[in-house]
Design a protein around this nucleic acid. Structure first.
Length: 884
RNA sequence: GCGGACGUGGCGGAAUUGGUAGACGCAAGGGACUUAAAAUCCCUCGGAGGCAACUCCAUGUGGGUUCGAUUCCCACCGUCCGCACCA
């Protein structure tokens, strides 16, 4: 008799309210079980969840439910990264308050997330725009300021002319703003910075200990921090230096090539350039020209190296008779090292290009081993510098270099460092060893409204005054207008006008707000005690942290993940918690991608959503037509789901027609979780088929099964043994796979088990009581192992199998390894490394037994043709290879 | 330019980390049930040869190590990603 189809909509709602009523996902801080903190990167409340969220939160939920079943006290919270520009843009476009817009979006998205049936402790939910949250962030800011980790300085900053705000270095991608895509300009502004560079070495060194992070992310962070060891070298200026400049300092990692120096170059922003430009209009023009060129990728790609000969010369530190010209050059960055370099054209490509252009000497000082002492070859090698266009940057031995001659590069570096340290110039060592980093301090000031106000006051007499504790939080005013460009906080009639807490005089508030990446740099700590009247309860934070498994997109490899690592250290330094690394395990999941469809070809093609088209297949060729008119539609490449490509699928639609379990299951099957998953209608349909199939199997079989607590009858049944083995093998494999986050493999193992159960269930009930018993066991194991992935269906099956309690509350089943012990095994038998047959033999057979048995197999006899084998390789319980 | 990852059927992918290549799913083809459709069930499904048991080829290409290589080593080709005038 066919049972009714499983109705996910009805069942999912029912189980979700059961879970909520019993508060089973609420986590206590005083629970004695071992802790496990699983966290997915919290969403920005854009208004609707998208498939990327579904994938992210489905994965996290599997881990959370699995670890809960394994006996852990699991913390699995959810919140909202709720400050940021989209709210202000919406405010400008739809004349709605950013606060209202944000909280409406949160409410809508929370409803959607709840439909997914996630095992989240909603009592710990917060949004970063909640006053309770950003009030604590303001306290953190002031603590950091006291500790010297937050400071203000004037600097050249990245200005996004579209978003009208400053951006951190990490937020400039290829010279463009990470959100707006606008070409970033350089401006001089006074800004607040977090001293992330105070932890340079530690942030770098600690990467080695993050062995549960993807190697890729660690490499990206290593490169971003960019440590290089070298020397700071002083060059005395000859002739008549301008007031206040008697020397120029350069940073170099190639001090071994100092004898190959042929010029010095300083950045257009170098103080010396500025000083010289004061009475040299041609130099001032040159500098202005450099600033116009910009720093975008395109600009740099095509930018030629330009230099301006200042007419000054410096003395070579060793060979004082050698005078090197000083240029101002567009390719020298003020922000790295000292803003000045020495040019060694023979061994640096950039310097080579520059020297060629300005006809400066190119003197090789490092030669490859294979040409040294070769006469003709050496002469040819030297010759290439005058005719070729390439510098020699590889290893070798020093030549033309006085006391360094004959040394290899590391030895020459060491010798030169020692020599320069011993020499003095105007009372200073001529050179000192120095380590430089690419990483800059993190500029956090944003000239925007919808962010956490920086809690300081500017007083004409007392300068910068922190807002006193009693006056915190500095709340955002509600009555703001977005009519004109610029920062609404700045335009507000009253908000910024205050009296100075120190002197009582008239003063103004800081109107800049914090970069929203500050908000997300410590939210994981706040979840451990979101009710606290301090930023954290240190005991709770120290007990829960680090996050055991963090899951999110690779796009945060540097930004959010580096900032959070810094912030954790800063919070340790200010006593809010006591650890260095916030995320012990990190997993970066792939994107959700989908085919694209266009009406018409080329640039004019109009993007169509999957709902607007019909797909067909004839003779293996797929084609698409527009549903409304039947016009042919071009099937485009598979790309990340995006609004602009219109290739999105709304999770709510999917959950409405198939249910959350189907959506979750499909997201977890097929593709490995760190790779992109292709969303297809067929794939979802397949997942839905599986849901129905499991349900049918349970619903049709359950009424005929022995009672849940019945004892296994006596006797022996091969079918029952086989089914039990299949079930317990699957149990072990599924547990292992989930532990390794290999969800697609876990899914495949469950498909196999369902196939095995389906085959066994075709035996009429009662015919083999042992098999009936094994069927119950297999179905229960299946139900419990699929519960992390399809929690609603699992509850429904669990209840149907006669259980009163919840699967969500049940422990992970015990694996019975004893039934997998075989007394007879099947060994694959190879001849010359290729499988030719099998050998069935007792599992305790000796190597000699196996060899004798193999020699009797007819395909082995045939292959040998009467000869003795050269060798027989027996890998116990694995394989046999006969070498002929 | 520097750094990294990947390359297995029509497709997504699996292969106990050196041991039966292609599990599982999707698509496709054939069949059963049905008045019909949906749903469901059964069979086939890397290539070539053979009535057949079977044989040969095959994990981007070429070499190497090994009894045995998708897995390890070398070179090359291709795709994707990150960084990039960092001295």
């Amino acid at each position: 008799m066919a049972s009714e189809r499983y109705n996910p909509k009805e069942a999912e709602a029912r189980w979700q309210s059961t879970w909520a009523e019993r508060h089973i996902y609420e986590t206590r801080n005083d629970d004695p079980r071992p802790k496990y903190y699983v966290l997915e990167m919290f969403p920005y409340p854009s208004g609707r969840i998208h498939m990327g969220h579904v994938r992210n939160y489905a994965m996290g939920d599997v881990v959370a439910r699995y670890m809960r079943a394994r006996g852990h006290n699991v913390l699995h919270p959810m919140g909202w990264d709720a400050f940021g520009l989209p709210a202000e843009n919406a405010a400008i476009q739809n004349s709605i308050n950013p606060r209202e817009w944000t909280y409406q979006n949160i409410a809508a998205m929370r409803d959607q997330l709840k439909l997914m049936g996630l095992s989240i402790d909603w009592t710990r939910e917060f949004a970063t725009c909640d006053v309770d949250y950003y009030a604590q962030q303001q306290k953190l800011f002031l603590d950091l300021q006291k500790a010297g980790l937050a400071y203000r300085r004037k600097s050249r900053v990245n200005w996004d002319p579209v978003d009208n705000t400053v951006l951190a270095n990490e937020q400039v991608i290829d010279g463009r703003g990470w959100r707006s895509g606008a070409l970033v300009e350089q401006r001089e502004l006074t800004q607040w910075f977090f001293r992330i560079t105070a932890f340079n070495d530690d942030l770098l060194a600690a990467l080695d200990g993050l062995d549960r992070w993807p190697e890729k992310v660690r490499i990206m962070q290593r490169n971003w921090i960019g440590r290089s060891e070298g020397m700071r070298v002083r060059f005395a200026i000859n002739d008549r230096p301008p007031e206040g400049f008697d020397h120029i300092e350069v940073f170099t990692t190639r001090h071994d090539t100092l004898f190959g120096a042929s010029f010095l170059a300083v950045s257009p922003d170098h103080p010396l350039a500025t000083a010289l430009a004061a009475d040299r209009p041609d130099l001032a023009d040159f500098i202005a020209e450099c600033h116009r060129a910009g720093t975008s990728e395109e600009a740099l790609e095509t930018a030629e190296k330009h230099g301006f000969d200042t007419g000054l010369t410096v003395a070579h530190p060793i060979d004082k008779n050698l005078k090197l010209p000083v240029y101002v050059a567009n390719f020298v960055l003020m922000g790295y090292g000292t803003g000045a370099i020495f040019g060694c054209p023979a061994h640096d490509q950039r310097d080579f290009d520059f020297a060629t252009k300005y006809h400066l000497p190119i003197k090789p000082v490092v030669a490859p081993l294979e040409v040294i002492d070769t006469g003709a070859e050496f002469a040819a090698w030297i010759e290439q510098f005058s005719t070729g266009d390439e510098a020699y940057v590889d290893d070798g031995r020093l030549i033309n270099s006085d006391f360094l001659d004959g040394m290899d590069v590391p030895a020459a570096k060491e010798a030169m460092a020692a020599r320069l340290e011993a020499m003095t110039l105007n009372g200073h060592a001529q050179g000192v060893r120095e380590v430089n980093y690419r990483l800059r301090d993190w500029g956090i000031s944003r000239q925007r409204y919808w962010g956490c106000p920086i809690p300081v006051i500017h007083c004409p007499t007392c300068d910068i005054v922190p807002v006193p504790d009693a006056d915190l939080p500095v709340e955002l005013p509600h009555d703001v207008t977005f009519g004109r460009p610029g920062n609404p906080l700045d335009h507000h009639p009253t908000w910024k006008h205050v009296t100075c807490p120190k002197c009582g005089g008239a003063a103004t508030r800081e109107t800049d707000t914090m970069d929203t990446f500050v908000d997300s740099s410590w939210y994981f700590a706040r979840f451990t005690a979101p009710w606290a009247k301090t930023p954290t309860e240190p005991d709770a934070a120290n007990a829960w942290l680090p996050v055991d498994q963090y899951i999110g997109g690779i796009e945060h490899a540097i930004l959010h993940l580096l900032y959070s690592r810094f912030f954790t250290r800063a919070m340790k330094a200010t006593g809010h918690l006591d650890l260095d690394e916030p995320f012990a395990g990190l997993f970066t999941q792939g994107m959700v991608v989908h085919e694209t469809y266009r009406l018409g070809t080329g640039q004019n093609g109009k993007w169509l959503s999957p709902a607007e088209i019909r797909l067909e297949e004839h003779d293996g060729k797929r084609s698409a037509t527009l549903l409304s008119t039947g016009e042919p539609v071009e099937i485009g490449p598979i790309e990340k789901m995006s609004k602009s490509r219109r290739n999105t699928v709304d999770p709510s639609d999917i959950m409405d027609s198939y249910g959350a379990d189907t959506a979750r299951w499909f997201m977890l099957s097929d593709s490995p979780p760190d790779r992109d998953v292709i969303w297809t209608e067929e794939g979802v349909a397949g997942a839905f088929r599986f849901v129905q199939r499991v349900w049918r199997l349970v619903a049709e079989t359950a009424p005929h099964l022995p009672a849940a607590d019945s004892q296994a009858p006596a006797g022996q049944s091969d079918a029952a043994d086989a089914l039990r083995k299949a079930a317990h093998k699957a149990l072990a494999a599924v547990g292992d796979s989930i532990g390794l986050l290999r969800f697609n493999v876990a899914v495949a193992r469950m498909y196999e088990l369902v196939n095995a159960i389906g085959a066994a269930a075709s035996t009429p009930p009662g015919k083999d009581p042992l098999l009936d018993n094994a069927l119950r066991e297999a179905l229960e194991l299946l139900t419990r192992m699929m519960a992390p992935m399809m929690p609603h269906l699992a509850e429904e099956c669990w209840a149907t199998l006669g259980h009163e309690n919840l699967v969500a509350d049940s422990p992970w089943p015990e694996f019975d390894g004893s039934i997998l012990v075989e007394d007879v095994i099947v060994l694959p038998v190879q001849v010359n490394g290729k499988k030719r047959g099998e050998l069935t033999i007792s599992s305790d057979a000796s190597q000699g037994d196996v060899e004798r048995a193999v020699m009797a197999l007819d395909f082995v006899v045939r292959a040998l043709g009467g000869n003795d084998p050269k060798k027989i390789v027996v890998v116990p319980k694995r394989i046999v290879n006969v070498v002929v």
